[in-house]
């Protein structure tokens, strides 16, 4: 029995290895720089993390459903451009937000329809959404020819979205709602089935195609929300603002511990992943490590997290085989 609990602790450490390492970095920085762990600084980090975090929540759904969505970064940029342009044209800010959301939703639905119409596996989804990334990014470049657009944003609801703790509130409520849906509803359960084994889901009478479209739609919509929050915070839009967000989002998801092979995952853990990465990169900033160095780290972080995931699975399978052999 004792060996069992030691094994459990080992498993726990192994499956959260990356998170533990990150928290060690944070603690060390906290010791070196005393005001690093201050409430204000953490709040600030959280605010910065929210935009990526919202995108990462949508990415979690896609990955649980068994596919990547690489178009998210471009959707963030495009939504910002559309919203700011609409506001600058003097249209009501609610309509501007609506346009932005519709654009993200539209691209997401297009992704979903394309992929589920060919019953695309993760490889095809990867490349199609990659193509969509290029398409959406280029559309975002059209209106301003790639230039930064300053927004003439009046005080009001739109501006409110990016102020103070609003981004954090939006981020966390989205995460909680998505996690709740995932673990407590029919829709969430079916998502796990589709991600684990699409054929079983189909042959159990689940509407696989329709469901898959919704994962990309949600991912697109959330990216649009992230784009709106982002440009509300900076009251301007940059047609390349979201470049590389897909990487950051995937990093948050894998560091959080959602498996790359689909079928299981947890949105709250993605939040933890996003926040951990955010605090880490803040810590690295404080330690004087540049953004470019951090990019290297981020790439390696994704690799390490996925490698750990694979390692854990191998170990778990081996243990399971042993147990099975013993019970006959």
């Amino acid at each position: 029995m004792k060996s069992m609990s030691i094994r459990k602790i080992k498993n726990l450490i192994r499956s959260n290895f990356i998170l533990i390492v990150i928290f060690l970095i944070i603690i060390i920085t906290g010791i070196i720089e005393s005001n690093y762990l201050s409430f204000n600084n953490l709040l600030n980090v959280l605010r910065q993390v929210s935009v990526i975090g919202i995108v990462a929540c949508g990415m979690t759904y896609c990955l649980i459903g068994g596919a990547y969505d690489l178009s998210v970064g471009s959707i963030v940029s495009l939504t910002g451009v559309i919203t700011i342009l609409t506001i600058n044209a003097g249209v009501s800010e609610f309509i501007a937000i609506l346009y932005g959301l519709l654009a993200g939703l539209g691209i997401g639905i297009t992704n979903g329809i394309l992929i589920s119409s060919i019953n695309g596996r993760s490889g095809e989804a990867f490349i199609i959404t990659y193509g969509m990334q290029v398409v959406a990014a280029s559309i975002a470049l059209f209106p301003s020819n790639g230039l930064f657009i300053a927004g003439r944003v009046p005080e009001g609801f739109f501006k409110f979205l990016g102020q103070g703790v609003m981004p954090i509130v939006i981020f966390l409520s989205i995460a909680i709602i998505l996690q709740f849906i995932l673990s407590n509803t029919q829709y969430g359960r079916q998502m796990c089935f589709i991600g684990s084994n699409m054929d079983v889901a189909r042959l159990s009478g689940v509407r696989v195609k329709l469901n898959r479209v919704t994962y990309f739609a949600i991912s697109g919509l959330l990216s649009a929300i992230a784009g709106i929050v982002l440009c509300s915070r900076v009251t301007s839009s940059n047609p390349t603002a979201g470049t590389g967000f897909e990487m950051d989002a995937i990093a948050a998801v894998v560091v959080g511990g959602t498996s790359m092979s689909g079928g299981s995952g947890n949105v709250i853990r993605t939040v933890v992943g996003a926040v951990a990465i955010g605090i880490m990169s803040n810590a690295l900033n404080i330690l004087g490590i540049t953004a470019y160095h951090q990019q290297i780290l981020k790439g390696l972080l994704i690799i390490a997290a996925v490698a750990m995931d694979i390692l854990n699975k191998t170990i778990k399978n081996r243990e399971m085989e042993h147990e099975k052999a013993y019970t006959g």
């Binding site: 089935f193 684990s196 084994n197 054929d199 079983v200 042959l203 079928g263």
Partner: peptide, 12 residues
């Protein structure tokens, strides 16, 4: 391949 999801439990 098409009947069960091997790493989910009986209720699911």
């Amino acid at each position: 391949g098409t009947g069960i999801v091997i790493d989910m439990n009986i209720p699911k």
